[in-house]
């Protein structure tokens, strides 16, 4: 049996709302791969947040720039890369503290990276000064569901 390797590439304009294309494409891929519904919802939200960060912060809402989204499938995982022309996020990832938010001691926004890390199996942010930066997200199939190509 051959391991499966396939990829899909999207090029999105840097306009809020277009993250839905990446979300829905990833959902379709996830269903084909056999991910359960709850993991597909996790992936959709994580990808939405990564794309919104790329659109707003990486590409500064400049519609002349594109956000590149690559979905790469293997027999047991789906890796998504979201690439923009920016220099990458500032670290560390801000952990939302609802008590501080409710007392206006922490801004109400800024939960995107926290949600990404919480919803996928692997998340990292990579900066390459010459070509921009990307978020890399990975979700893995449960062992019994690994895809096989006969």
């Amino acid at each position: 049996m051959e391991p499966m390797h396939s990829s899909i590439e999207l090029s999105l304009p840097s306009r809020l709302g277009f993250e839905k294309i990446a979300m829905n494409t990833a959902a379709s891929v996830g269903r084909i791969m056999g991910f359960p519904d709850d993991r597909i919802e996790d992936l959709k939200t994580a990808i939405a947040e990564a794309c919104i960060n790329a659109i707003e912060h990486g590409n500064k809402l400049d519609e002349r720039l594109c956000v590149s989204v690559t979905l790469a499938m293997t027999s047991d995982s789906l890796e998504v890369r979201v690439l923009d022309t920016g220099t990458g996020p500032k670290f560390p990832v801000e952990v939302p503290d609802i008590d501080k938010k409710m007392h206006e001691e922490q801004r109400t926004r800024g939960m995107g990276m926290f949600l990404i890390q919480a919803l996928v199996d692997e998340a990292e942010w990579v900066s390459t000064p010459s070509s921009g930066s990307y978020a890399r997200l990975v979700i893995r199939l449960p062992k019994a569901q690994e895809l096989q190509v006969k």
Partner: peptide
């Protein structure tokens, strides 16, 4: 999305 959740907060 998280920006919408921020508005709810």
């Amino acid at each position: 999305n998280s920006s919408g959740i921020a508005l709810v907060i």
